[in-house]
Amino acid sequence: MIEELLVYTGLGLIALGAFAQLVSGIGVNRFRNFYLRLHAATIGSIWGCVYPIAGAGLVALGYKELGPYSTFMAGAAFVTSFLVLILSPAGSHALARAAHKTRQALVEPCVHDALDPSMCVRGGGS
């Protein structure tokens, strides 16, 4: 009973991750500047990477055909999801800070930019 519950919960989380990755892929291609694309990338890294990996750990806990090393697989999956949960926002933040400081990516359809008003391109089309 409890094994079936773990396996069904994990498979649901994996399917949720596939849906979130599709949404993030469409968003990364449709948004108009780098800082908006960062928003879509956050969906792809938290909903699309942390939750499916934790779900795979739950599946490994309840799935009997994996053999005696299934608890090893579950532990490695939980450690990986925790690492991604910490590291992906840190990497995105470092990248956005470098891009804004060195004026690599302009803020194209802009309303207000309090950090550096000269990077604000008002009403930009494209």
């Binding site: 994996i14 991750g17 990755q21 993030s24 990364v28 780098f34 694309r37 960062l38 990338a41 792809g44 890294s45 699309g48 990477c49 499916p52 990996i53 795979a56 599946v59 490994a60 799935y63 055909e65 994996l66 053999g67 090393y69 299934s70 090893f72 697989m73 999956a77 990986t80 991604v84 992906s88 990497g91 995105s92 990248l95 956005a96 470098a98 891009a99 690599q104 990516a105």
Partner: peptide, 29 residues
């Protein structure tokens, strides 16, 4: 260049999920 690096980032997180899910698929922990 930040767009390229963001793309590589997302590709590799996608690849991490594929590694673990295919590990369950092959039944090799």
């Amino acid at each position: 260049i930040p767009d390229h690096v963001l793309g590589v980032d997302l590709l590799s997180y996608n690849l991490a999920v594929l590694f673990i899910v295919l590990g369950i698929f092959f039944k090799e922990p």
